[in-house]
Nucleic acid binder design. Structure first.
Lengths: 149, 149
DNA sequence: ATTTTGGTTGACACAAAATACCAAATGCCA
DNA sequence: TGGCATTTGGTATTTTGTGTCAACCAAAAT
């Protein structure tokens, strides 16, 4: 989804949910939407601190959490111990590279459909699911070839 | 898989791969295997530091990574920014609670099968995949009902 | 059984990632 | 435009994970 549409969505959601539409929130949404990949909070902070001096790291972390709560942004499951964020909240699988930790989309083709139940037998309510494909990106494969084993 | 079997597997793998079978490694494997859930390294450290005074936090982190490299343990994708570990390395989906962060297994029934390609069009080699079901556990649902919205 | 040796551990320091706190600033609505 | 609850910035702190290195120990060879 384009940055334009995302800004529009942000505006609507802020109004309807009664939260403030601050410049910081707009800037953070833009910084996330214009990136094709799925950056971490600190990566976004690096991008933003240039464009918008004075932007606080705390704010980036906080606003991203707010976006997740509002359903504007998705947290991506990743094997790495840090949070990656995605402005595309539609259901789609991700590729995670074990070499460099890079996270990217995989929308090339269908490889199966899951239909999880809305509720498990022990009362766990399922509201969402995620598919993560794990492996090695082209760069890391080549690198691996040249080094050990 | 039971702790018994896991200890046996650890012993075999250590022998065949030429790594030492230390008391720490046995204790860490046991601590992980006896838990039904999928604890973090620090949770395991808390469990272990009681049973085995002197156990170092560094060792827990290090040994878990070793287990992952040896294929004895799996890292579980979770939306939280910390690593969860699973002694069951067979492919199975996980439930992640957005309320309390708890991670548990979901083996109740089939809800679809995925057959990801071994390689994507842009040269990403897929070696594994994970399915994460996200939602709210019974406890957190009740708690939510009683609080706001 | 004793010795040897390379892998392993424990303790600490350090780095990275995320959160808590609170005064100051600001968006929003009347 | 003014009042006020929300939001932000900055700092401190916690949480999570890694680097280093001397001391230790499991495993194999005497």
């Amino acid at each position: 989804m384009s940055d334009q549409k995302k800004q529009q969505q942000l505006k609507e959601v802020c109004r309807s949910r009664g939260v403030s539409l601050t410049p910081q929130r707009q800037a953070i949404m833009r910084a996330l939407a214009v990136r094709g990949d799925h950056p971490t909070a600190d990566q976004l902070y690096d991008d933003l601190s240039c464009q918008m001096p004075g932007m606080s790291r705390t704010t980036v972390y906080r606003v991203l959490e707010t976006f997740v709560k509002l359903g504007l942004v998705r947290k991506v499951d990743s094997r790495a111990s840090k949070a990656h964020f995605d402005a595309d909240v539609t259901l789609h699988p991700h590729l995670v590279c074990l070499g460099c930790g890079k996270v990217c989309d995989f929308q090339d083709r269908d490889f199966g459909v899951l239909q999880p139940p809305a509720m498990t037998d022990d009362g766990f309510e399922i509201v969402d699911y995620a598919v993560t494909l794990v492996g090695y990106c082209r760069q890391c494969r080549h690198h691996e070839k040249n080094s050990s084993e």
